[in-house]
């Protein structure tokens, strides 16, 4: 049955081939995308010490995607709305629930890695699972080589993903200091991003690293149009000076 499903996917759903998926997972069919996302949600839950999200926080995106990962300084701001308990069962129920708001920090972040790994294994088209894993391995756990290898694996399965290209470019820029490779990945990311609807924050993410990589290579001419574009997107910001001063005088990265 798994082989039949795979043959069907190869024939009719070229983008969703399951040849990279373990055999037992192929039985899930398209449902594996849901299971994979559940696995990411579980990672997010782990990141919050098992308590999950509360109603008044992270309205726009998951904290797991945010780059600031510290123990919350004001946990009371995020705690569940407490209501006067009506009876003893309510009080017990309230006590049973974990209501303190925490983020995993330092080495503890490793606990979310299995869920991200499984999310990618279950659905290799789940791009977020690769970028998140890459981010945590490189930025939080200092496993740059493993992070790059995993992102490359993701890129093999999703060659059209600007996100994975951008993440690889960022890591080569920030950690490996291989600016040549960084510009290669980031240029591909910029081209791919142009072809799809996107917001200015996504564009800033790619172009700022690309511009800084060009600067690092001494290719100020290539960096300037990028800074000008960034200044158009975010006027009166940090890019204003760089888009005016050419060649840039104060390089800082």
């Amino acid at each position: 049955m798994a082989l039949s499903i795979d043959a069907y996917n190869r024939t009719y759903a070229i983008d969703r081939s399951m040849s990279d998926v373990p055999v037992f997972m192929r039985f899930l069919g398209e449902g594996r995308a849901i299971v994979s996302n559940l696995s990411i949600l579980q990672a997010d839950r782990y990141f919050h010490g098992g308590a999950g999200h509360f109603a008044d926080e992270h309205k726009e995106r998951f904290a797991i995607v945010e780059k600031d990962h510290k123990v919350c300084e004001n946990p009371e701001e995020h705690s569940h709305a407490t209501t006067e308990p009506v009876n003893i069962l309510f009080r017990v129920s309230q006590e049973m629930n974990v209501t303190e708001h925490v983020h995993l920090h330092d080495d503890q972040v490793k606990e979310i890695i299995p869920w991200l790994y499984y999310a990618a294994k279950i659905d290799p088209q789940n791009i977020q699972s690769y970028t998140l894993t890459g981010f945590y391995l490189c930025d939080r756990l200092g496993k740059t080589d493993q992070g790059i290898a995993f992102l490359r694996e993701g890129l093999e399965k999703n060659p059209g993903s600007w996100e994975i290209n951008a993440e690889l470019g960022r890591i080569y820029f920030q950690y490996v200091k291989n600016y040549e490779t960084a510009t290669r990945y980031l240029s591909i990311a910029a081209v791919l991003l142009r072809e799809i609807p996107h917001d200015k924050f996504q564009e800033r993410y790619v172009l700022s690293f690309l511009a800084r990589s060009y600067e690092a290579l001494g290719r100020g001419k290539d960096a300037l149009p990028l800074y000008r574009r960034l200044n158009e997107l975010f006027p009166n910001g940090v890019f204003e000076e760089k888009s005016r001063n050419f060649p840039p005088k104060n390089l800082s990265f």
Binding site: Y46, D107, K110, E111, I113, P114, W115, Y117, L137, L141, K143, Q146, G147, F150
Partner: peptide, 13 residues
């Protein structure tokens, strides 16, 4: 005994 990217000490899951 699962090994995730050679990260040691993963136990919560």
């Amino acid at each position: 005994y699962q090994n995730f990217f050679q990260v040691k000490g993963i136990s919560r899951y």
